[in-house]
Simulated assay, not measured.
Amino acid sequence: MRDLKLDFQVLTPLFLGDAEQSAELRAPAFKGLLRHWYRAASPDDINKEACLFGGTSNAEGQSPFLLRVESVSIRTAGWADFRAAQFNQGSGRNTRNGLVYLGYPFQMKGNETRTAIAPGQAFVLRCTYLRDVAQEQGRALLAAAWLFAHLGGAGTRSRRGFGSLSLRSWNAEDWPDAAQLPLLTEAKSAEEGRAMIQSGIDTIRSWFKPVENVNQQRTQAPHLGPEFRFKLLDKPYPAEQWNRALAEMGAGMQAFRLRRPPDYQMVKDHLQGRPLQTTPPRATFGLPLSFRYTSQRGQVTLAPLDAERHGSLLLLRLLRIGARLYPLYVRMDGAVPGVDPPAALLKASRGLRRTEHNVMDEFFDSL
């Protein structure tokens, strides 16, 4: 047997829990996240995925490794502890708050008792291999862990900055390929961090089949194809000011999207009797998407045709470099919401025409 030990620290509140929404570090959730990031690294034939993470058919069987979460104790916090009101901008009906915007729906009525694992919490993921594995499988787990730790997050609203983690160290003695993947906690500056991220991505791409050659159906999910890119901003924040960092990231996104033409008028016209024919460009940020107007009765909700949701390809998170936190924006490759597959009015049987404007990319390019 050999272990892969991942030493993590929570950077932003991690809303991960049981059925009662009480904060809990759950091994099945982390294994699912590793599977997700393996798909991003190697979106090819599903049989290889099952060889690493297990499957339900007779030919697949059990995963070759066990995953355990180790933590001495768990410190929790609730939404009220994050002092979101200090980031309010404006007043009354025009109040805007970037932390509330990214943290929807944590502040809503009914979530008062919901708890998160607090920033600063440390824990270990230990992956224990039960049998010998080929180099390809070892690299698959390393790639999934590295991508999850540096690009992704865990729990509710992890695409919008909550559940950001820092991989402080991993035991690489039995994993020689791990030396090819840099840990961002060892960077000394944002510039060095950007170089390390690119180096890690290049290494992982070299380990697996190029995305252009794989099954098109599998590439609908987020992956590291040609459209993948990232931006690590130069503005640092003290670790204890994670809430200010997210508030400023959220305020920037909210200002970009607020009443952005032509979405606002397109949907308002729909409520006034001129049916919507084309997907509003804002759908490219992710679906479902709801529009509400104080001057109009009713609500308009868009969703993917024949599906409940289509997650955003744009990921926001905080990355720890030294003692500071830096904003990281990641644009994954994959099917763009509202473009492929098309969007539709909620519960409608017919899709809308695809949007011609990818405002998600416009926002990314504006950073």
Rank of each mutant, 00 (worst) to 15 (best):
R260S: 10
G200Q: 05
G110A: 08
L66R: 13
A50K: 15
F30I: 07
Y326L: 10
R131W: 00
N111Q: 07
P238G: 07
T284Y: 02
A29Q: 04
I321R: 03
L125K: 05
D333P: 08
S73M: 04
F162G: 08
L328D: 01
L246V: 09
N111G: 00
D3T: 04
F87W: 13
R194E: 02
R126E: 03
G273W: 02
L167N: 05
A143W: 00
G90R: 08
I201F: 06
D202M: 01
L325P: 04
A145Q: 01
Y329D: 07
A239Q: 13
S164P: 08
G32T: 10
F228T: 09
G338W: 01
A343Y: 03
F8L: 04
Y104W: 10
A323P: 08
A85P: 01
L11P: 06
V72A: 14
S189D: 05
A29H: 00
T279W: 04
R157P: 06
D263F: 01
F15R: 11
D44K: 10
Q265N: 07
E192N: 09
N47Y: 07
S366W: 08
Q241I: 01
E192H: 11
W79T: 01
A77L: 15
P262H: 03
V211E: 05
P236L: 04
P182S: 04
D81K: 12
Q137L: 15
A255I: 00
Y104D: 03
Y101M: 14
A303V: 13
T113R: 12
E248T: 08
P43N: 08
R39T: 02
A221R: 12
S189Y: 02
L313C: 05
G32M: 05
S169V: 01
D234G: 12
A154W: 04
R35V: 06
D7M: 08
G298V: 09
P342H: 12
R354I: 12
F30G: 07
G92V: 10
A344S: 14
A343G: 12
Y264E: 13
T95E: 11
D3W: 00
H36N: 07
K188R: 14
R160H: 13
D361V: 11
L11E: 05
L67G: 11
N358I: 10
G54S: 11
E186R: 15
E186M: 10
T76Y: 00
T115I: 01
F162M: 06
P226F: 00
L233G: 04
L183S: 07
A80P: 01
L99E: 03
W175I: 02
W207G: 11
R244H: 04
A116K: 04
N213G: 07
Y101L: 12
E362C: 09
L183K: 05
Y129D: 03
D7L: 03
T156N: 13
A118Q: 11
P341Y: 00
Y237I: 10
D365G: 11
E356H: 14
R157H: 06
P342W: 02
G54R: 09
A27K: 05
A77R: 10
D81S: 15
R229S: 14
A245P: 06
F8R: 02
G273S: 09
M360A: 13
D340C: 11
V100T: 09
Q198P: 10
R324Q: 14
P119Q: 08
